[in-house]
Amino acid sequence: MISGQIVRPGAVLRGHLHLDGPLIGEIIEDDRVGDDIIVPGFVDLHCHGGGGHTFTEGDPDDARAAAAFHLAHGTTTMLASLVSSPFDLMRDATAAYLPLVRAGVLAGVHFEGPYLSAARCGAQNPEFLRDPSVEELSALVKLGEGTVRMVTVAPELPGALDAIAFLRDHGVIAAVGHTDASYADVLAGVAAGATVGTHLFNGMRPPHHREPGPVIGLLSSIAVCELIADNIHLHPGMLAFAAKTAGPGRAALITDAMDATGMPDGRYDLGGQEVIVADRVARLARNGSIAGSTLTMDEALRNAVAAGIPLPDAVAMATATPAKVLGLADRGEITTGKRADLVVLDPELRVRRVLRAGTEIPPTIG
């Protein structure tokens, strides 16, 4: 039994939570419980690594260690995000991560590139950027047997709408990101089947009142908008604005974390490019572009609440909404019969305990 303030859809209930093996069992109200806060396990749609380990090189041992680092911070479901790469690396990573997906270590692979705008590539390696290829995607989807779960595409590129439609038709999430697209281009991408906006605002043409561009296009659409809540990629006021505009059902907190997360300041690598981390901020050595984050999902939740987002909404943005994006109806909410992926937080929203499918994860956070 776990007792405390149970964050359920749209509400906080004081009481006891019983487990039924790997599932959530009975929930009993009781005002006499303590101040621990119980939330569903976090679901991260966009993460490149952590704890000194990376997803970007296709190494399964490194990937397993990165997932374990984030699991200790409450992320019980995550995609392994790669950056723009040669096709051979994309293929090899898909094959290498397939067993991890089947074992439940990862929920799948996210290819953030290489089908991105050169003008908005950010920390992506411009050497590997290219136009969308249905041929490449077809080979990866076939090889992965469900491993490939999301691909970010700039919808203005030649062949992009065909690629998005292909992904939609094969059960892969198409995301709009790293784009210099017009408002109309973005709406065309959504109409073709895109359902996610990759780290809204970042790697996108800024909004303008005479050409709204991708940010307003995504906020105005049905797409779920990813938000990096590290107070670096987004000012807290912009985070709160975007969350309120999209609503908790269409806003998802992500980390965009790299291997430097949880590690000392220093020099790191991202997709073959040197990254310098100083005071938690990761930037490319060659031009100073922000290069991912050093964020964990528990910190993202704290930052979202500090920005003024109500706790139940912030929790939904870190759990239920991204779970729905992935089509995982068995998790993301504290409801009887759902998988017992749970995080117990103290009143300051810091992790005390993590359970995945009812099994407690040994604490590793210092």
Rank of each mutant, 00 (worst) to 15 (best):
Y268R: 10
N202M: 10
T77Y: 04
H170D: 06
D35P: 03
P126L: 10
Y115R: 08
E145D: 14
L218M: 02
H235N: 14
A192T: 04
E348Y: 15
D298A: 12
A80L: 09
G366V: 09
A80M: 06
V141A: 04
G122L: 00
G337H: 05
N231G: 00
R339N: 14
L161Q: 08
A257M: 09
G177Y: 00
Y183C: 05
L13R: 15
S289F: 12
L100H: 02
L167G: 05
G10Y: 14
A107E: 07
R130Y: 13
P132S: 06
A184G: 09
R280C: 10
I228W: 08
G358S: 10
L311W: 04
P132N: 01
G51Y: 08
L345I: 08
D162E: 13
G308S: 10
A194R: 11
F166G: 04
L301Q: 01
V281N: 00
N125A: 08
G146K: 00
A63R: 11
G21K: 10
R250A: 12
S133W: 05
R267G: 14
R283S: 08
S3Y: 03
A257G: 05
P362R: 12
L311V: 03
A278I: 04
T261M: 08
C47L: 02
V109Q: 05
I276R: 13
E274W: 13
A285F: 09
P86W: 00
D61K: 15
V305C: 11
A191T: 07
A181C: 12
M263E: 11
R32F: 01
I254V: 12
D259Q: 15
L311P: 03
S133C: 10
M78I: 11
A291R: 05
D31K: 15
A174T: 05
H208C: 07
V101G: 01
D61S: 12
L234Q: 11
G104L: 11
V151D: 02
